[in-house]
Amino acid sequence: MEHYHMNLTLKVWRQKNNKAKGSFETYKVKEISSEMSFLEMFDVLNEQLILEGKSPIAFDHDCREGICGMCSMHINGQVHGPWAQNTTCQLHMRAFKDGDTIVVEPWRSKAFPIVKDLMVNRSAFDRIIEAGGYISVNTGNAVDANAIPIDKKKADDAFMAAACIGCGACVATCINGSAMLFVGAKISQLALLPQGGPERESRALNMVAQMDKEGFGNCTNTYACEAQCPKGISVANIARMNKEYIGAGFATEEN
């Protein structure tokens, strides 16, 4: 891979806390290597800011290998930046060229209030899981793991849905701020597996109710969520969620 260096202009959203008014600030960074990750470029900028006596930019990040779901930057209008199926931490500077101006914002969603600068509060996702994103099996209750064979296709589909990292990019990129890809992925994973059977209906109803309560929007089938999901979670999961939800509604009426 050819390496090169670049000078960049960054326009970054700064906001002291949840109550303060935010605004864009402009920064220059020099001699950035194309081999750096995007967050390493932010490390360079922050070191620079600290030495200049300024306040470094707060941003969420942890594993830096694309799996924890913590990093969350809206880069030049795209969640997680320009690469397909990627997280911010895995975006590398070879995606940019010398002289570029890069605009960086936090996730935009009413349900994800800003904590500081580029950090947002995604605890709404945890509360949706609390509403039913689990199988009620206490430790020690399980039967032998091979006692229930599972059709490989269904197991693979469940795995694909379970690959969700809970980053919230689907919400941030959606014009409606909908969380249906996130919720649909969890409902699908558990609906596809026989273990999820007993709570299937209550799960769909309760998770959707919590999703609405948190203030997430509805789905209008733009498919932006799938296009921008770092793990390529399919919108088929939303269809499955709707099927589960409607099915659960009928089942409830029968009872």
Binding site: I135, V137, G140, A158, F159, A162, Q189, L193, Q195
Partner: peptide
């Protein structure tokens, strides 16, 4: 027991075509 517990929770471990 760990494997049993995790499968019961819906952890999607890799499976063979026979479903095991």
């Amino acid at each position: 027991s760990i494997i049993d517990q995790c499968v019961a929770q819906g952890v999607p471990f890799a499976r063979e075509y026979g479903g095991l």
